[in-house]
Amino acid sequence: TKQTASESEEEEKEEEEEGALRWKEGLQQKASEAFLRQQEAAPNLRKLVYGSVAEAADSEDEEEELGGLFRVSRPQNSKKFQANALDCSRFNPDASHDWDLEEMLNSIRDCFVTGKWDENQ
């Protein structure tokens, strides 16, 4: 049994070496992929808030004319935000959160004093 153990150890070593070599392959590509993944996951909030407001599309161009006299008036559903929507500060909850599930309840347990504390607290 000793023999087999040492053999398997050697195999493991070889695998490790191979693994180490494989790990070095295409580092740059992996890094760029990881960077892109992170970029997708964390949208640039600053751009989201301040960047996308430049194009205030002129609605007049979009209006169709009928016989050169009448204009087709359409509700502004297509706009990014509704200019005439209800002015209300309430933030409606995320519908995907089901607070009957144990999993969901567990996700906030440490927000309470009864939850787990960090070591430095």
């Binding site: 205030a56 935000f81 509704q82 200019a83 005439n84 929507a85 209800l86 002015d87």
Partner: peptide, 8 residues
Amino acid sequence: DGCNFFRQ
């Protein structure tokens, strides 16, 4: 444009 965010 529009009455949204009127108070702000």
